[in-house]
Design a binder for these strands. Structure first.
Lengths: 347, 347
DNA sequence: TCCCTGCCTGACAACGATGTCCGCACTCTA
DNA sequence: TAGAGTGCGGACATCGTTGTCAGGCAGGGA
């Protein structure tokens, strides 16, 4: 009758608890806790007996219970857009190194470029009471995180700022990078330069477009609407945009591409047109093998590992001291000259 | 005095609990629980009052406490070697899709190719009581997971089998793939074929080497020790191995490379030697832009998304029914012909 | 008018671990 | 040898949530 009272209906497996260990070792509950946590105040003999019981039963501390009592999880979450995007690999790795140095577990999650999934994921991690959260925003409104941040979940935004929320942010110099890329093409004689970028409304996308405009205007060149195309990075969309700029009545002689996904597609389009006139190209984001393509691809390189490292450091600083003023850090980009950006203009 | 008794020393932030919501809404604790979990048996008016209190306080259910009570976390963990390796992107994404279909959160972690970190990470996830674990083994002995598996944590190994443990496993046909790759080179007239692979002892590495041997022996060709080099995938090591095979007294005319890291380095070495005689190449693992290199790289493609999908499905099957017999599934590979493997032998 | 059914609602115990505090046994010193 | 100090072990409350169960209240039938 009362034997099962209050017992969850279907316990999954069934693990030994400290109580089991204690009774097997013939000691008190708290003594087991002391052994498990390496606290002092236990004689060597007792410690050994407890350890034997732990091994025999296959005991492992239940961290949920521990968290409930202690209030901290020693866990931080990282939400990025797509684990398969090579840009995020080094970023995630850098965050992991910092977390590890703070004896903290890193949980990686992916929003798949979807604002709802980002939100779900972030809130699920909050419900699990991560101590901190690093977010590469996919959504456009992050007010849903305000109660969580007020409640003490340290939060840092990476690569893009949050909308409608004041918080620590670590960015790349998107405007300056794009501007430098276009200036480079102009310096090599190009005048008809096109820009193919990501969906407007995304911060990185908007800033890079702004950098393109700045460079064009500084050189006194017109920014023609038919030479700017922003939208999805899906290959078909990018392909069509590139073909329109290349085959129009007044074709571009050079292109700036807004991120590595776009660059790869454009490289493919240009390769297929081989016998045609060569078109100069500068890509935003470095990517593996860029140096082995012919021509090798000149890029504006970001420092994804740096983004991750700086953001993680900021996160831990905030976890240690919640009352810091929100800061925005912008990391420089670097033009890597490889050949594709140095092709002369050909009509 | 007793006011703070038992209170953790430093609660991080401080969140409202169901009790706070209950007293604000003027209802009982359990009623709040019912509203939060969408359980029936609450009138619309009460429900609304509770919801208002939740919103006003910024309440979010503490999943640690919930897990403690319910015994399941609705979370699975995926441990892979390196989040930055493009091979694992699609794998992780496929797992995430399956997990999502089961209303389960996926936690990604990386072992950084280190057996100790794999172990730490796996056990940390067990301590957090994930319901299931997908592991791409980095270590060579997985007995440490036996108590966990016995205790009910469903576990599936992906890409490589676990050592010394009987468990569900999903693999690629490494032997058959490598064999097909070498047979392809032989069919194009090559006789002096080298193999450069990953560290011996890793299952994938050993199987691919075995596939190389099989194909050579089937063609009656000798397997010479100076034409087989296995070890770290660090660029220097691979570079040296390649140069020795290419510059020796009896140089190879074709190479099979054991994974995408090795392939990329070898492509780089071959590119630097451009004016030299062309060397045929078949790489294990497909990689982005392989088709855009000149010559385009012929590869033995695995199906990383398939690995992830099948493994995740198996994991959920086992979570639903723990007494399944451990199974081993092997997914086929596919030879993708692009040019580099079809170069004729040149002395 | 009274009882009974059925629906809401809330009190309470329990999940597993940890912090506090008390008590015991021992050692060291006067 | 007694008193004080120290080291060690254990009882108990508590963290926030959910399952159980019983009580209260309204409405309908006798």
């Amino acid at each position: 009758m009362t034997l099962t009272a209050g017992r969850p209906p279907a316990r999954y497996g069934s693990r030994p608890t400290m109580k089991d260990v204690a009774s097997r070792a013939g000691v008190g509950l708290k003594t087991v806790s002391r052994v498990v946590n390496g606290e002092p105040g236990v004689t060597a003999g007792t410690r050994r007996r407890v350890q034997e019981a732990i091994d025999a039963l296959g005991f492992r501390r239940n961290d949920s219970a521990r968290v409930l009592r202690k209030g901290r999880t020693a866990t931080v979450g990282l939400i990025l857009e797509d684990l398969a995007d090579p840009f995020y690999g080094p970023l995630s790795r850098a965050v992991e190194e910092v977390a590890r140095a703070h004896d903290t577990l890193l949980i990686n999650g992916s929003s798949a470029h979807d604002a709802n999934r980002e939100r779900e994921l972030a809130l699920a991690l909050c419900a699990r009471r991560v101590d901190g959260l690093l977010v590469v925003p996919a959504g456009t409104d992050h007010r849903y995180l305000e109660p969580e941040m007020r409640a003490g979940i340290a939060t840092v935004f990476v690569d893009r700022p949050a909308r409608a929320v004041e918080a620590d942010t670590v960015l790349s110099d998107n405007h300056g990078g794009a501007r430098a890329g276009v200036a480079h093409l102009i310096a090599h004689g190009h005048r008809r330069i096109g820009y193919i970028g990501d969906v407007p409304g995304i911060h990185t996308s908007d800033e890079r477009l702004r950098g393109y405009r700045t460079a064009m205007e500084e050189a006194g060149l017109p920014v023609r609407p038919d030479r700017v195309s922003v939208g999805s990075t899906a290959p078909q969309r990018v392909r069509r945009a590139a073909e329109e700029m290349l085959d129009g009545p007044d074709p571009v002689t050079a292109l700036l591409t807004g991120n590595n996904r776009v660059t790869v597609t454009v490289v493919r389009v240009l390769a297929e047109r081989q016998p045609h006139r060569p078109v100069a190209l500068v890509g935003f984001d470095d990517f593996e093998l860029a140096d082995l393509l012919r021509p090798a691809v000149t890029v504006v390189a970001q420092d994804p590992a740096g983004l991750g490292r700086v953001a993680a450091q900021r996160l831990f600083a905030r976890m240690a001291q919640a009352e810091l003023e929100p800061s925005v850090v912008e990391l420089p980009t670097r033009l890597v000259v490889r050949g594709s950006g140095e092709l002369p203009p050909v009509d």
